[in-house]
Design a protein around this nucleic acid. Structure first.
Length: 491
RNA sequence: GCUCCGGUAGUGUAGUCCGGCCAAUCAUGUCGGCCUUUCGAGCCGAUGACUCGGGUUCGAAUCCCGGCCGGAGCACCA
């Protein structure tokens, strides 16, 4: 600990600049958890929790636990368990331990019983609305006065009752100024088959109960969660006190709003079922698989999330911000290619034969060692119709090739040098050789598809490669069969 | 309605705890210049913010009070 390496110092300063604050009350190592509900794949909001936990885990050392919170059988998508792990892997977040709550129902039963024995929980058979009426007036229902033995007896009978007949409530403070905190439900009956564990249980813990038991048992030191859990943290503290457990450090961050995107899993699922979206990776969605398909890199998301940090104030993420960060990642990696998406075949008239030949162009201007693309040029090319429309009667330069002029519906050779192009203020555009073009599709963020033509060098690309289609923008190659299909990322 | 919590440039963020070094940081965006056979990148420059009103103080983004605006929760969901 005497000499910090230069890397450590640089890293320290960097995180300071990023503004990710230190965790409060860290003693040695930390134990953190990422605890999603397996109702669907992860979205950008989850990425925040995942990255933050991961970052703190890396900063302090300790343990990061993945916990699947599937205690509501109705809100479980059996496919989600797998998808969540895939998504986390894509994010580069590794976990030391995985816990599935539906494997632990028995354990929650034991703690529930213990709580009854402690006299801190009671079986409540009031109808929900009746309890709420009383609770809102700070009045206890009669169930609250049941003896421990009566409670135990009812508890044993609970599995034989049906949904809604009874719940187990945690005693808090019936006079608590926030009605939401008063005597919350710990266990309830669910008559619904659990997608993972079937019908072996019908008495399930509520999130607040299961979370508290697990956080304690797993020795979680710091709980990072959204501010929508503010009241839950307050509720959970009562349980910690009843059991005599140490309360972890709760840190609440604000809501994340995503420009133009419905982040909620339930809305996405509905849209998929209704056919509005093509699937979990539909470009409209804010799921990680959707943004990944569009060529957004996890590095960009990570930088964004660490910058946003754990502030409790809400934040609005704009796509421009993500694109800006992503461009920094992609710029270096993406090789350049020509493609046009409103192709118009033109024959250049009066082209001197000396200009025909093969044009060499760097794959990446900053990395000459990546080599060249070869573009055969014989005077017959595809240009973008929009470029032509915008340049009627003006000189236009085909990149690395010749200058032309579009006049009276025809294209004529004008000159050849870049100097001439500059002199005539020519716009410089990309082009595709007509003799060796390849059909491509470009899926836009609104899921519309542009059909176009690209230079033949794109044949060397593999699915998942990200390129820069010059003057069009960055795009990720998704598949090459039956046709080369790109997803547009951003300019 | 009740309970709780926020409000720094277009957006995100640092600074707020322990008032002065803040005529306020960095990122992204936008605009301009240079460079460059495109766009982008790079380099240089510009742009633009402490929600409002009082108070305390020699001094307030920072402390206090009030207003305004915004958010979260008020489930037998997580």
């Amino acid at each position: 600990m005497k000499n910090k390496g230069i890397h450590e110092i640089v890293k320290e300063r960097k995180t300071e600049e990023k503004g990710l604050v230190d965790l409060p009350h860290v003693e040695g190592e930390v134990v953190l958890r990422f605890a999603p509900n397996p109702s669907g794949p992860l979205h950008i909001g989850h990425a925040r929790a995942a990255f933050l936990n991961h970052e703190y885990f890396k900063r302090y050392g300790g343990k990061l636990i993945l916990r699947l919170e599937d205690t509501d059988p109705r809100r479980v998508d059996p496919k989600a368990y797998q998808m969540i792990e895939e998504d986390l892997t894509w994010l580069g977040v590794k976990w030391d331990e995985k816990i599935i709550q539906s494997n632990r129902i028995n354990l929650y039963h034991q703690y529930a019983e213990k709580l009854i024995e402690l006299g801190q929980a009671y079986m409540c058979t009031c109808p929900g609305d009746e309890f709420k009426r009383l609770k809102d007036q700070s009045q206890a229902c009669t169930c609250r006065d049941l003896s421990i033995n009566d409670n135990l007896k009812l508890w044993k009978e609970m599995p034989f009752m049906s949904e809604g007949e009874a719940v187990l409530r945690v005693k808090t403070d019936i006079n608590h100024k926030n009605p939401a905190i008063r005597d919350w439900v710990a266990m309830r009956i669910v008559d619904f088959e659990h997608p993972r564990i079937g019908t072996q249980y019908n008495v399930y813990p509520m999130m607040n109960f299961a979370v508290t038991v697990d956080d304690h048992l797993q020795g979680i030191t710091h709980v990072l969660r959204g501010k929508d859990h503010l009241a839950n943290s307050e509720k959970q503290k009562y349980l910690y006190h009843h059991f005599g457990w140490t309360v972890p450090e709760f840190i609440h961050y604000g809501r994340l709003k995503m420009e133009d995107v419905a982040l909620s899993t339930s809305q996405a699922r509905k849209g998929i079922n209704d056919g509005v979206y093509t699937g979990w990776d539909d470009p409209h969605l804010g799921t990680l698989r959707a943004v990944s398909k569009r060529g957004i890199r996890k590095e960009a998301l990570e930088e964004l999330m660490l910058e946003i940090g754990v502030k409790i104030a809400d934040t609005t993420i704009t796509w421009k911000k993500i694109y800006g960060l992503n461009r920094n990642v992609l710029e270096e990696e993406a090789n350049r290619y020509f493609a046009v998406f409103h192709p118009r075949k033109v024959v250049i008239k009066y082209l001197p034969g000396s200009f025909k030949g093969v044009i060499k162009r760097l794959k990446h201007p900053d990395f000459p060692d990546r080599g060249y693309r070869m573009l055969p040029f014989d005077g017959i090319v595809y240009l973008d119709q929009i470029d032509l429309n915008n340049n009627e009667n003006k000189v236009l330069r085909l990149m690395d090739s010749v200058n032309i002029i579009f006049k009276d519906g025809g294209i004529t050779f004008h000159s050849s040098s870049l100097e001439d192009a500059r002199k005539f203020n020519a716009q410089i555009v990309q082009w595709v050789p007509a003799t060796s073009s390849i059909d491509v599709e470009l899926v836009m963020p609104d899921n519309s598809i542009l059909k176009g033509l690209a230079e033949s060098s794109i044949e060397e690309l593999k699915p998942n490669d990200v390129v820069q289609l010059e003057r069009v923008g960055f795009a990720r190659l998704d598949e090459i069969q039956p046709k080369r299909k790109f997803y547009f990322a951003h300019k």
